[in-house]
Amino acid sequence: MGLIARCIEAAGIPTVSMTSAWDVTAAVRPPRSLYVHHPLGHQTGRPGDLPGQIALVRAALEAAPSLARGEIRALPFRWDAPGAEGWEARAYTAAEAPTGPDGKPVRG
């Protein structure tokens, strides 16, 4: 997505990108990035929580004008779903690798 952000920005339209993968985003360097400490697949919030999604999107859009070029800034959103403690240790490990239609792991 970072490549697409850079392409749109270069055409004269400002962009703001969400991310939950700091290292990937730091490598690609989109113009403006807002990090939420959520598992992948939840960059704009929790399922069934529209008020929380609105709050997150609002915070991101409101922060956008104050971001410096290439900055990645953490927004104060943390993943605290029930039973999710320690999710960081399990993310993208063999235990939780996403699998393709053939049952073999694929890369995101």
Partner: peptide
């Protein structure tokens, strides 16, 4: 195929915040 889509299938707003933007 690159992330766990279970929650996004319950509520696409997790990754596609169209309803939030409309609000």
């Amino acid at each position: 195929f690159g992330y766990d889509v279970r929650d996004a299938r319950l509520d696409p707003g997790c990754v596609f915040p169209l309803a939030a933007l409309r609000a």
